[in-house]
Design a protein around this nucleic acid. Structure first.
Lengths: 331, 331
DNA sequence: CTGAAAGCGCTTACAG
DNA sequence: CTGAAAGCGCTTACAG
């Protein structure tokens, strides 16, 4: 910038004015400055700008896996809101590892992002306290924060699962299996809670063997689904705890030729779910809306909102397509 | 940092040493510094660090849409490689708008990302010349850069499409439709080139009505597919130019009850494609490998490689699943 | 092992 | 309309 000023024969501040489009520069002066910028290939260094201004116009997003079809649209929605506020989005995947989540979040804070959207992998977020105290706006999405209080945007996981299971019960099922994600993940236990609530409400017993929480790796899910479908009192319907579980369950049922014999409702919608036979009934969340809502809360904070931490719960939606309306196989 | 130094009764440089884990500090001194850091809630400001060091340890990725199932894994792969090099990833979606691509790329450069991975929306990348001259490593993926020369990683679009169409021809088809993306998009025209090459090689005529390039919005694709399937000489097979077109084509065929009467091969794999009936035959790219390869080239540049711009072409893979092996409906 | 000075490239506050 | 000085929070190069 100094070189530009020298070459244009003006002061440093004048170059700054031109670069930032501030008023108060003669057309002629501006022309000379622009010429010098072009000749020297000058590119403003935002790091220096940030250092003075305090704001970076960037926000961070820590999620589980950017490539997951549930999180990708969420991330995109955050990006879009950020864009409208003139901010860039830096995102990182925690791979469901609390330590990695922490490293990422702190690295983003060290870059002085103005705000942070976090989909927690861990259960203790006290490591963020100094950052919060320093004014980094923070919003949690999809899962609540642990041991600190902050804005949170969640889907109604328990309510959605309950509705899905009640739907199966309404279609005559009494033995319903639940295959979900690992028990330390909030959404997994909430959905299980919904399952239990629906079974309870219908006064149906729940066998231990009908419930399985754990990694959503296909091998494990495969084994659990097979197990639930065999033995003395096999389930006649399955509730799949998330999109990965649903995909594997559909595969197992289809391979075994059971796809029209075992009812299935999945949490989270799937691409092409409507084209399978039977089409897959799901409890859909709206990932883009989750992201948008979280980002909007974030920018409200950045605009100075000092309200108490808010908790927003978004409804889920039952989409009946066929697999969830199958009657139980006769015993 | 100054406050920390004062409180710990040491010099500024000593605090810097502790924060960066540099050697040459007594255990006792270090303890005092750490205590002061904790008491004051000190958080290092990386902006200042960047300003001095010149490197930000961050790379930028400009893509079309972060939520697209093709780009999400590509982005994730770039992130993973960046992580291994200690860098964060900032990504932005151009929404297929050249102006937005330019704004994003330049904004990333102003943040002084060390390198840039670009999936071009535009056809003229001369706006990046000053950045390249200033040493910003840049790699293009999925589509080549326009009017500048830089490292590029592409799938073999023409070869893949040619193989897919030849596959349909080998199964007896002579009237094959091609529905692809907009003609200014490199991958669209390359794939069309592959289609023509396969038809030519089999000495088959190509009617204008069998080819349609344009936006991949479902409404348009729907109309074009319907048109190709009706009229005096309807096509007996379709080649879908990308994942969005394939999804819509599958929908149309299935709604019209033609899914076992019209053969279909799609470019790009789809989640659950193997579970549809018939399962969908595709020409698969490996988006994660594209991202990984691009990121690796990028970090080679950052490590000082000054070789001439390289062009890497990755093979595609035909995955026969059923829809592409259907025989032509008898005329 | 430790620290004072200079400087990275901008912006802010002020003065002409 | 324009510019010189000070400072954002670090690191570099040097000296003790």
């Amino acid at each position: 910038m100094k070189d530009v000023a020298t070459r244009a024969g003006v002061g440093l501040k004048t170059v700054s004015r031109v670069v930032n489009g501030e008023p108060g520069v003669t057309a002629e002066t501006e022309r000379r400055v622009r010429e010098a910028i072009a000749a020297l290939g000058f590119r403003r260094n935002d790091s220096a700008r940030v250092l003075r201004k305090g704001r970076t116009s960037s926000v961070g997003l820590v999620l589980e896996d950017l490539a997951d079809p549930f999180y990708a649209p969420l991330s995109r929605a955050v990006e879009e809101v950020a864009r409208h506020h003139g901010a860039l989005l830096i995102n990182g995947s925690s791979a469901e590892d609390p330590e990695r989540e922490r490293e990422l979040a702190l690295a983003l804070c060290a870059r002085r992002v103005d705000g942070l959207v976090v989909i927690p992998a861990g259960a203790d977020h006290r490591y963020l306290e100094p950052e919060l105290a320093a004014g980094v706006a923070t919003v949690f999405v999809d899962r609540p924060p642990g041991l600190i209080s902050a804005d949170t945007v969640l889907s109604d996981h328990a309510g959605g699962a309950r509705e899905g299971v009640a739907h199966l019960i309404a279609h005559g099922h009494r033995r319903i299996g639940f295959v979900g994600d690992q028990p330390h993940i909030h959404t997994a236990t909430e959905r299980l809670r919904g399952y239990r609530a629906a079974m309870d409400a219908a006064a149906l017993p729940v066998h231990d063997g009908w419930i399985s929480l754990g990694p959503t790796a296909p091998e494990r899910v495969r084994g659990e689904v097979r197990r639930m479908l065999s033995g003395p009192s096999p389930v006649t319907a399955l509730f799949a705890g998330n999109n990965r579980v649903t995909a594997t369950a559909v595969r197992v049922l289809s391979e075994r030729g059971l796809s029209t014999a075992v009812a299935l409702v999945g949490f989270d919608d799937l691409e092409l779910a409507d084209l399978l036979s039977p089409a897959v009934t799901v409890i859909a969340q709206d990932p883009a809306r989750l992201g948008r809502t979280a980002a909007e809360l974030l920018f409200q904070r950045l605009d100075g909102s000092a309200a108490a931490p808010r908790r927003v719960e978004l409804p889920t939606r039952l989409i009946p397509r066929g697999s969830g309306e199958l009657p139980p196989a006769s015993d």
